[in-house]
Structure formats: structure tokens, C-alpha cells
């Protein structure tokens, strides 16, 4: 590949600055979490991160994030498929609209969704007579997290769907496969890594999400209290070690997910190479 010595200047300067800035802004501050937790004794730490209210918050956070990511996979696939394969009026508008959750501040999304889905909101008033309560319940959290996560799934799937070669599908059709068989046996396996990556990205984002959730969640301990909110609550009571211990648990989980995403992308790129 490329030679160890490049004639381009600025390697030391740019790499040095990159590492310095990265350390000052990200690495050193993040390490504070580990050092602070290291000051706690193991039994204290364990008792804290497994206390009933905390465990309930894990269940709410992970449960709602999982459901939201699954909903996003299903509808995200339909949206990405329609945007890449079909022609319809306003396609460019809808394509741009997909990015709205990236662009709209989470606090705005939070107050909007909770007003929309509250008992006398535009949507909530039609759900209420059917006994469906969304705002101030875990269902509301799922709605907010679905909103936040959608672009991750659509934007990971779109390029893969665009790059699929038509010949492969034609070959499947020539060999007598029905359209459904072609989708299940040819298209789906090809887009599976991207779908899983999108799922993990949406899931990872949902777990840490705070702004859009707290408005719609109702934030009842044991029922609709998410872990990030519990961290904030502990901070407000000046329980710094408690907040840090919870942060560490979430951080470790985020790192595992980041690792998974990198692994999935590596898998996807290897697949792409083999197919080419």
C-alpha cells in the first residue's frame, strides 16, 4: 500500500493536535467516571447498581429502547425500500423529512410528542376512548424513542438497497423464484448486516436518550423512570458517587454496543467485498 514516508507535511502537527484535543475534551473527562467509581467499595457499588428502583429503571430503559428499535426496523425497512425502489409524488420531500429527528432538538420533540399524545392532544384524544394511554406511560417512551431512532435505520439501509445489483434479482426470477422467495433468500440476507447495524445504532441512541423522553414519560419511579433521569435525580441530590456508578453501568453497555456496531460494519464490508 502506501509508503511509510509521505511527502505531505503536517503529520506530526495534525496527529498531535488530534490526540491532544481528543484527550482534553473526551478521554480525560470520561476517565473521571472510572476513577470516581474506583473510589467506591465493590459491595457499595453492587448494592447501588442493583437496588430495586435502579433495576426497574434498567428494565424501562432497555425494554422501551428494544421495542422502539424493533418498530424502527420494521417501518424503517418499508420506508427505505419505498424511497429507493418506487417513484411517487413528493419523494424528495419525504426523503429529506427522514432526517428531521437528527435536526430537531430533543427538547422540542419531547414537548411536541407529549402534547400530541396527551389525553386532549391531537392524537391522544382519539386513543383515550379506546383505553390507550400514551403520554406519561412507558408507551409514550416508546413513541419518543421511535421518533429519535428512525433515521438511523433508514439511512443505514438506503445505500445498501441502492447498491444491490439488479442482475442477482433477475437471476433469481429466471430460475423460477417468486418475488417473495427472492426477497427472503436473496435480498434479505444481503441487507441483513445493514439492518442489524441500523437496529444497534437506534438501540444505542435510545438507551442514552434523555431530552425527548422526560417530557412524555411521566417519570414515575419503578414504572416509567429511565436510567439517565435517575442519574440526573441523583446529581440533583448531590449524590455524585451514586450518579457516577449508574453512569459507569450505562457507559460499559454503550461501549459493548459500539463494539458490536464496529463488528457488524466490518462483517458488512467483508460481505460486500465477497459479493463484488
Amino acid at each position: 500500500m502506501s509508503k511509510p514516508h509521505s511527502i505531505l507535511p503536517g503529520f506530526r502537527l495534525s496527529l498531535g493536535y488530534t490526540i491532544l484535543y481528543l484527550s482534553l475534551i473526551v478521554l480525560i473527562p470520561l476517565s473521571a467516571i472510572f476513577f470516581k467509581t474506583a473510589l467506591m467499595s465493590w459491595p457499595d457499588f453492587w448494592a447501588l447498581v442493583t437496588s430495586p428502583r435502579v433495576v426497574a429503571s434498567y428494565k424501562v430503559t432497555f425494554g422501551t429502547s428494544l421495542v422502539a428499535a424493533l418498530i424502527n426496523c420494521l417501518f424503517g425497512l418499508v420506508v427505505a425500500w419505498s424511497l429507493t425502489r418506487y417513484q411517487f409524488v413528493g419523494k424528495r420531500f419525504f426523503d429529506a423529512l427522514v432526517d428531521l429527528p437528527f435536526a430537531l432538538p430533543t427538547a422540542v420533540a419531547g414537548i411536541t410528542l407529549s402534547s400530541l399524545y396527551s389525553v386532549n392532544g391531537w392524537v391522544g384524544q382519539y386513543l383515550e376512548p379506546h383505553g390507550i394511554k400514551v403520554a406519561y406511560t412507558p408507551t409514550g417512551i416508546v413513541v419518543a424513542l421511535t421518533f429519535i431512532g428512525l433515521p438511523f435505520v433508514v439511512r443505514t439501509l438506503q445505500p445498501v438497497l441502492e447498491d444491490l445489483e439488479a442482475e442477482v434479482e433477475e437471476a433469481a426470477a429466471c430460475l423460477g423464484a417468486t418475488r417473495w422467495q427472492t426477497f427472503r433468500r436473496v435480498i434479505f440476507p444481503a441487507i441483513l448486516p445493514a439492518l442489524l447495524t441500523g437496529f444497534t445504532l437506534a438501540f444505542a441512541r435510545a438507551i442514552g436518550e434523555y431530552g425527548s423522553v422526560i417530557f412524555i414519560a411521566g417519570n414515575m419511579p419503578m414504572i416509567s423512570e429511565i436510567t439517565p433521569l435517575l442519574i440526573v435525580a441523583k446529581l440533583e441530590q448531590y449524590d455524585y458517587s451514586g450518579a457516577t456508578a449508574l453512569a459507569l453501568v450505562m457507559l460499559v453497555f454503550s461501549f459493548v454496543l459500539l463494539f458490536t456496531i464496529n463488528g457488524l460494519q466490518w462483517w458488512a464490508s467483508r460481505r460486500g467485498q465477497r459479493g463484488a
Binding site: 470520561l30 438507551i207 442514552g208 442519574i231 453512569a247 450505562m250 457507559l251 461501549f255
Partner: peptide, 19 residues
Amino acid sequence: LIDLPFAVSPVICGLIYIL
């Protein structure tokens, strides 16, 4: 490592500066 801040919950981003 550059991608790391995307994986961290916003609440934790604030917490580290308080620590």
C-alpha cells in the same frame, strides 16, 4: 475513539464535567 461521544448518553457528557 473519535466516534465515542456519539455512544455516550448526553446526561453522562454533562456528568463528567461536574466530576
